[in-house]
Design a protein around this nucleic acid. Structure first.
Length: 590
RNA sequence: GGGGUCGUAGUUCAGCUGGUUAGAACGCCGGCCUGUCACGCCGGAGGUCGCGAGUUCGAGUCUCGUCGGCCCCGCCA
């Protein structure tokens, strides 16, 4: 069977369109051969496009047609001309949208052949990720990826509609821009025209969107690629997409009141809701209760401080810790009392892996309380700790001692590991949360200086303004993160619009006037020309769509993602380049 | 940079304590089949066991190194 031209043939329907309403019509379908069922004198095959599947039948009343159909192979590209027929009741296929009908072929045109696919497109079999990435064009034909990319399109469309309705302008900002050494490592682009000089790809359009506020654009939004040259994770790619927005005359409440209905509209895409208002939690509370600045509220298992019963006990490990100002912290694993000795050892091992000095467990049993600390601490102390933690009969209490924040974080990670292992994270639950009141700065021990936690344009809480100079570690910022199911899906702040305050913050960060001018001079200057109070947020589109799609990795919602080593297995990037290109760019390779 | 885990046919995997010619399923190729829809039945082809050293009479299996995928820590304003 020879390959034939498409000619002027146009499709009349997609492969997901035909129903019993079309019975009797002459149709033209174009698509890929999905599966062939050759019964001898009768051949069925399914033709596929991104809209669906339609069964085609080639019968003996056209012998050459049957022989054509026999030559079809999966993934060949075909045109089918034929008539829609109703299927006999017993032949209806309820699994596909077009299952009530089939197309009786009059002509089959082979438009193109396909090599044997490296993995099946027509089954939901597992294929290793490197094979999928190497043949991404084949992988993208699979139902899962088509669904994910369609969902992503719908999300982006909904986002643009929503912001348009709310008076936002989408404005593009430069991809070739200026390197600012703070934050993530930049991707650099050498300048041919200016030897030795470089552009940087944006880590985010932060400064540009603030300048757009100064320009009076009022409400800005952009669905924009951002670039960070850092190591990858399941939820981190070197290039990723932000829904970046900025609002003049913004307060936290205004930003939240715009974002929350948007999240509702996105949840509606999967038939779900986002009940409003979202919970708000101070950063300090998130650390104390969940040991994380992005707590997954689906898991329960809140962290508690359990120092009190141990302070005067004879359990020296905890007692001594408390005496030096540390705390005993712990949480209850529901139904954890059934854990075997081995499982308890594993838990302790996990805790040590996370950096805990040790893990002490306790449980109430029929025969009384049990705990490795029972002998030293005494039954009353253990019983009091169980009570304080809210542990019931079948529960297990785990405890660790140490500095408040560090111990909380360790237990927070342990909590998540257990939640995953015990399937406590309901995949059908969606827990939104605003984390607010982040610290303004964090102390870099190695470099013995303060570093901004969010970014250097974040405004301090008005109440904490005086702390900036007197006690910077305690100053809180008007920064906020949007968290969904333990994933940070957005982060933003109310910005500094007063150039004097901005200069002060740079100074606190150890930046001299000259350095600040060199890096951000144009921005500092712009701030002096009538900057409205403003603020905004950037949402991680990849992460949001991944959660909506029920995927564990953002690679599943990105058409052409990179591996953990930042390699594009299909395109073969990065790669060496022609020496001539290097010369033009004034670059030498070691 | 560090830790964990995986790498065997086109694909997904099995392969025990080191021992004959490395298996299965799906896919692929050929044949049969008039109502299939994961069609069925018969037959066949297909392997640098990621790569390189080492131990051994003998390595898919053990050791070391290396490359690659995935997960995590560091890193990610």
């Amino acid at each position: 069977m020879d390959i034939q031209p498409l000619g002027s043939l146009a499709r009349t329907h997609t492969c997901g369109q035909l129903t019993s309403a079309a019975v009797g019509q002459d149709v033209v379908l174009l698509g890929w051969v999905h599966r062939v069922r050759d019964l001898g004198a009768l051949v069925f095959f399914d033709i596929r496009d991104r809209h669906g599947l339609t069964q085609i039948v080639a019968r003996e009343d056209a012998p050459s047609l049957v022989s054509d159909a026999k030559h079809l192979r999966p993934e060949h590209v075909v045109a089918v001309i034929g008539r829609v027929e109703r299927r006999a009741p017993e032949a209806i296929n309820p699994k596909i949208k077009t299952g009530d009908v089939e197309v009786v072929a009059r002509e089959i045109r082979l438009l193109n052949e396909a090599k044997t696919p490296p993995f099946p497109i027509n089954e939901d079999t597992t294929v290793s990720e490197d094979t999928r990435l190497r043949y991404r064009y084949m992988d993208l034909r699979r139902a899962r990826m088509q669904h994910n990319l369609i969902l992503r399109h719908k999300a982006a469309l909904e986002i643009r509609r929503y912001f348009d309705e709310n008076g936002f302008l989408e404005i593009e900002t430069p991809i070739l821009t200026k390197s600012t050494p703070e934050g993530a490592r930049d991707y650099l682009v050498p300048s041919r025209v200016h030897p030795g000089e470089f552009y940087a790809l944006p880590q985010s359009p932060q400064i540009f969107k603030q300048i757009l506020m100064i320009s009076g654009m009022d409400r800005y939004v952009q669905i924009v690629k951002c670039f960070r040259d850092e190591d990858l994770r399941a939820d981190r790619q070197p290039e990723f997409t932000q829904v970046d927005l900025e609002i003049a005359f913004a307060t936290e409440d205004l930003v939240f009141s715009i974002l929350e209905p948007l999240m509702g509209r996105l949840m509606a895409l999967i038939g779900r809701d986002a009940p409003r208002p979202f919970l708000r939690m101070a950063y300090a509370d998130a650390i104390t209760k969940y040991g994380s600045d992005k707590p997954d509220l689906r898991a329960g298992m809140e962290l508690r401080t359990l120092s009190e019963p141990f302070a005067s006990s004879n359990f020296s490990v905890f007692k001594n810790a408390i005496a030096t100002g540390e705390e005993v912290r712990g949480f209850v694993i529901p139904k954890g009392a059934r854990y075997s000795r081995k499982e308890l050892d594993t838990l302790a091992e996990d805790a040590k892996q996370l950096g805990a000095a040790g893990l002490v467990w306790a449980r109430a049993a029929d025969a009384g309380v049990q705990s490795p600390a029972l002998k030293a601490a005494g039954e009353d102390v253990i019983r009091r700790a169980l009570e304080l933690a809210g542990a019931g009969g079948g529960d297990l209490l785990v405890m660790a001692a140490g500095p408040h924040d560090a111990t909380s974080r360790i237990l927070g990670q342990l909590r998540l590991q257990i939640a995953k292992r015990e399937n406590l994270l309901d995949p059908n639950a969606y827990a939104f949360l605003w984390v607010v009141d982040f610290p303004m700065f964090e102390w870099l021990d190695d470099e013995r200086r303060w570093e901004f936690m969010h970014h250097p344009f974040t405004s301090p809480l008005e109440a904490d303004a005086a702390l900036l100079e007197s006690d910077p570690g305690r100053a809180r910022a008007r920064a906020y993160d949007l968290v969904l199911n333990g994933s940070e899906i957005g982060g933003g702040s109310i910005r500094i619009h007063d150039q004097r305050l901005q200069r002060l913050v740079f100074k606190l960060l150890g930046m001299t006037e000259e350095e600040a001018k060199l890096r951000f001079g144009f921005f500092l200057e712009a701030l002096e020309y009538g900057t409205p109070p403003h603020g905004g947020i950037a949402l991680g589109l990849d992460r949001i769509v991944a959660i909506l799609a029920g995927e564990q990795s953002i690679r599943e919602v990105i058409a052409f993602p990179k591996t953990a080593q930042a390699v594009d297995l299909m395109a073969g990037a990065p790669s060496t380049v022609n020496p001539k290109q290097l010369r033009e760019l004034h670059l030498k390779i070691d």
